[in-house]
């Protein structure tokens, strides 16, 4: 866990490139998946890219009865094991930040997994509002 996903809303222009990058990098059966990141406007021309905060004491992990959500100690991301998920939507209802999502097209629950340690959105963000940086140790 030497890396952190850094979101700097002051640099975000709301271009939504991150959404496209996320949806296409998570495509399945030639269909783009649901984006795990949402640049939402909270005031005129002011955007905040909202994505999973990978909380330490995460409500989604607590709410899952089947241990489908587990932290990947290497990347620090809470990953969803779809094989164990029964789509009860407890995590979607429990997340206080609304970052566990329902993908209606593929009929599954999705959440940000930091692309297994190489987030596509950070690669594509033109203003570098999203970064994946090494922590100073």
């Amino acid at each position: 866990m030497n890396y952190r996903f850094v979101v700097d809303p002051s640099l975000c222009t709301g271009c939504r490139t991150c959404e496209l990058a996320c949806a296409f990098s998570h495509s399945k059966n030639l269909k783009p998946g649901k984006s795990r990141i949402y640049p939402l406007s909270h005031a005129k021309d002011k955007y905040v890219p909202v994505t999973c905060l990978q909380c330490n004491d995460a409500a989604c992990v607590k709410s899952c009865f089947f241990d489908a959500l587990k932290r990947n100690e290497e990347t620090g991301a809470i990953e969803l094991n779809l094989g164990r998920c029964v789509k009860c939507r407890a995590c979607v209802a429990a997340c206080p930040f609304g970052c566990a999502l329902i993908d209606d097209i593929h009929d599954e629950i999705v959440k940000c997994d930091l692309c297994k340690g190489d987030p596509a959105c950070a690669h594509f963000c033109p203003t570098k509002a999203l970064r994946y940086t090494r922590l100073p140790i």
Partner: peptide
């Protein structure tokens, strides 16, 4: 059941995920 067995406050379940996401954006913007 979740709030009783998994120690989650009932206030987490009052709003839907879309509204919670918007609230997060507003808080972070502030």
């Amino acid at each position: 059941y979740l709030s009783k067995n998994r120690d989650l406050p009932m206030s987490y379940f009052e709003t839907c995920d879309d509204c919670k996401r918007l609230d997060t954006a507003k808080t972070m913007g502030r």
